[in-house]
Design a binder for these strands. Structure first.
Length: 124
DNA sequence: TTGTTGACCTCTT
DNA sequence: CAAGAGGCCAACA
């Protein structure tokens, strides 16, 4: 029973029409899900992994539609190069991102991940 | 249709 | 060291 969750939200064309080739957005979602718990990654690393280092902006834009995806996308594990929770304002609540990361065991201070470099994880 | 904005990154002044 | 501009692709008005 394929229940179609109505993605009547803004990004309706996020899902490819029977497309085998994953769009740039979907690739970002998959990589984000591959992030191990207690680790974080950056937009640039994901973009670079996809082969478009300069398209780091699209990664953030893709995260904007992550909420529209049927599967949960740990967008909270994705932060900017400075390790700062730049996208926290786009979550349900501005503190949700920090809360989620803290649940994972990541310490956050001043909207920035503590020892971010040590918790940084990169896609293979 | 064009123009602007956007959860970014890197280089240059 | 700090600030500014450019570049990438996609969605929205």
């Amino acid at each position: 029973m394929a229940k179609k969750e109505k993605a009547s939200h803004k990004l309706s064309s996020v899902l490819p029409s029977g497309g085998k080739e994953l769009s740039f957005f979907e690739k970002v979602y998959q990589v984000a899900r591959q992030i191990p718990k207690g680790k974080v990654t950056t937009y640039g690393d994901i973009a670079a992994f996809l082969g478009a280092k300069k398209s780091a902006r699209m990664v953030g834009w893709a995260m904007n539609g992550a909420h529209s995806q049927e599967k949960p996308v740990p967008a909270q594990r994705v932060v900017n190069r400075n390790g700062m929770l730049s996208g926290k304002a786009h979550f349900a609540t501005p503190t949700l991102m920090q809360e989620l990361l803290e649940q994972e065991g990541i310490a956050i201070e001043n909207d920035t991940i503590v020892d971010f470099k040590n918790k940084l994880w990169k896609p293979e």
